[in-house]
């Protein structure tokens, strides 16, 4: 008769976490950024029908990576929770914090219950406020913890690299076009340092726009509007460095080039951290770090 092997609880949890992480890492990433008028969600998703980003309620939206059936389940649960809350009390009483708590409970229970396999998903729940300070972004990893994020966040396959890139280049008060451009830049960088071109067909973009007159602030940016926004900013990017203005677009582009080599060499990592530390004066810092990482690019080429 075979007796089951003893597995320490630590080991069991580590195995489950490993399993979930691997599942999540297989998929493409989603990034969420704050901009002046709200929050923008950008996902790499060639499908028009199977969404990674969806509306939950008036001011709340949801983004997810991982297994589609699992996060779709959670999404519908979230819509039900929000609609029931709003109908029972008032539309104002539905908050991202409440929803994030429900998700955390659900994910946490599933993660630690031995009977079920852990969900291979990572979620973002965001709510747009009346001012940028009131915006809320919560990241919910597979194990049911909640992380309160500010400014920018990435989840999915290449999340670590993308979020460090976003941390360096995201600043307060970006326009939608600028934020979108930064998001696309960050998504188009591969793990191995290569770069892919992402066009409107590969992207799923949606915003929570606080300036929208309707009660429901969620809006998908589709087709022609998306290509126009993307083109506008790739055009502006070409002009700016030529003008000699220390434009953010220009410096972001330069350091994007530099970042590739830094990914392997780790030479610019220290500088990247510098840029993060002083993110208040992000304009100058960004161009400064861009300049210095250019130097490191040269050195790594040597």
């Amino acid at each position: 008769m075979s007796t089951p092997f003893y597995v320490s609880p630590q080991q069991a949890m580590a195995d489950r976490a490993e399993y979930a992480r691997k599942g999540i890492a297989r998929g493409r990433s989603v990034v969420v950024l704050q901009y002046t008028d709200g929050v923008v969600f950008v996902a790499e998703n060639p499908s028009r029908a199977l969404h990674k980003v969806s509306e939950i309620y008036d001011r709340i939206a949801f983004a997810a990576v991982g297994k589609y059936n699992e996060f779709e389940n959670l999404r519908i649960g979230g819509v039900r929770y929000a609609d029931l809350r709003g109908y029972t009390y008032d539309r104002e009483d539905v908050t991202a914090r409440g929803l994030a708590n429900v998700y955390a409970q659900t994910l946490g229970t599933i993660f630690s219950s031995a009977a079920e396999k852990p969900y291979e998903v990572e979620l973002i729940v965001a709510e747009v406020g009346n001012a940028p300070e009131d915006d809320q972004i919560y990241r919910l990893p597979h194990d049911g913890s909640i992380v309160d994020e500010h400014g920018s966040v990435a989840v999915g396959g290449n999340a670590d690299q993308i979020s460090s890139y976003l941390d360096q280049h995201h600043r307060e008060g970006m326009t939608l076009g600028e934020a979108l451009k930064l998001a696309v830049e960050s998504l188009s960088r591969d793990t191995n340092g290569g770069e892919r071109t992402l066009t409107a067909e590969h992207l799923e973009v949606a915003t929570l726009d606080r300036t929208r007159p309707q009660q429901r602030k969620f809006k998908r940016i589709l087709g022609r509007q998306l290509s126009r926004l993307l083109d506008e900013h790739s055009g502006a990017e070409a002009e700016k460095p030529a003008e000699g203005a220390a434009g953010d677009a220009g410096s972001a582009e330069e350091s994007a080039g530099a970042g590739e080599s830094a990914g392997k060499g780790k030479g610019a990592n220290g500088k990247g951290a510098n840029g993060k530390g002083g993110s208040g004066a992000s304009d100058k810092e960004a161009s400064g770090s861009a300049g210095s990482s250019e130097g490191s690019e040269e050195s790594s080429e040597e």
Partner: peptide, 16 residues
């Protein structure tokens, strides 16, 4: 009407 509004919105969000 409130319930009707809720149902239409709910359908729209769940079904896309």
């Amino acid at each position: 009407v409130k319930l009707f509004q809720l149902e239409l919105e709910h359908f729209e969000k769940v079904e896309g």
